[in-house]
């Protein structure tokens, strides 16, 4: 028989187990945490969360028409776009899309050829230095895993709950906030260096990227029988953030699906093991 004391001890221990790593987390926003960032509701958040196909398609459109002019995504292959759990393009669409791009290839005449689905997303600049020269000295970061390379800081004790809710949307919350956080004029008394832009959420507030989005910048195609999606900065920011999360974590849906099967198995298996253990120990005073 498990005694009350043991149960309490196990609960306390579980608390300590989760709290221990949690301490490491608190300062982890890497300086992004100075300003409060509102958490958004994302379709892919929580244990049941999955990507919204339409949102990913819209986000891809924003990425392709706006962001990809300066930002690369070197780990994303065209074929990823037709994989299950993603934006849900068909293989033909992806083939056609890839063919629109020229890929650097030393083994073909002229060094360039049209893309195929197996190719990675081509970088807008040939080298870091070229990127720097074209962007006032700042390198536009690669998008491949950027959504996981940013975070937000929760105040004590709220970060501890993240271990139980599995909150991992800090990166997209930050990116969305950044995209809507521009001001035309810096607040009074703020010295904005030349070539920089004022942003509420960027560490130090002076960001090299000009406001990339404006209302109506991207034309969303209206789906039949569905309400039109607003063509606003806020909506673009949301959609492209979601797309970046998918880019960083393209297998999120299958990962969670597997997780449910594994956890279900473990819980049932643990129950059977408990029953067997109790049966074996029956009659032994211990």
């Amino acid at each position: 028989m498990i005694k009350k004391k043991t149960i309490i001890a196990v609960l306390a221990l579980a608390g300590a187990l989760f709290a221990g790593p949690a301490f490491a987390q608190e300062e982890e926003a890497g300086g992004h945490g100075a300003v409060h960032i509102d958490k958004q509701s994302w379709t892919f958040a929580g244990i049941f969360g999955t990507y919204d196909e339409h949102q990913l398609q819209r986000g891809f459109q924003v990425f392709r028409e706006v962001c990809a002019n300066c930002h690369g995504a070197r780990l994303m292959a065209f074929r990823n776009l037709s994989e299950p759990g993603g934006p849900g393009f068909s293989e033909e669409q992806v083939k056609a899309l890839a063919a629109e791009y020229q890929i650097a290839d030393d083994t073909v005449d002229g060094g360039m050829r049209p893309g195929i689905p197996a190719d990675r997303w081509p970088s807008p600049f040939a080298s870091d230095q070229e990127a720097r020269d074209a962007n006032g000295g700042a390198i536009p970061p690669d998008f491949s895993v950027l959504a996981k390379a940013r975070g937000v800081t929760d105040a004590f004790p709220f970060w501890a709950f993240n271990y139980f809710t599995g909150y991992q949307e800090g990166g997209v919350d930050y990116i969305r906030a950044l995209l809507v956080g521009y001001h035309d004029e810096p607040p009074e008394g703020f010295e904005l260096p030349a070539g920089r832009f004022y942003n509420d959420y960027f560490p130090g507030h002076a960001i090299s990227m000009a406001p990339p989005l404006f209302d109506g910048a991207v034309d969303y195609v209206e789906a039949e029988g569905e309400a039109a999606v607003p063509e606003t900065v806020d909506q673009y920011a949301r959609d492209v953030s979601a797309f970046m999360m998918w880019m960083a974590e393209p297998h999120l849906v299958s990962r969670k699906e597997t997780g449910f099967r594994v956890l279900l198995f473990l819980v049932v298996f643990a129950g059977l093991m408990w029953a067997t253990k109790t049966r074996i120990w029956k009659g032994i005073e211990h």
Binding site: A24, K148, A149, N162, G166, G259, L266
Partner: peptide
């Protein structure tokens, strides 16, 4: 088996929560 339950929770539902976002740079 009981120990594997929180283990699996982290692996499948919060694999990055124990690490640092900066390590994705």
């Amino acid at each position: 088996v009981v120990f594997l339950i929180p283990f699996a929770w982290f692996v499948f539902f919060a694999p990055d929560i124990l690490g640092h976002p900066d390590n994705y740079i």
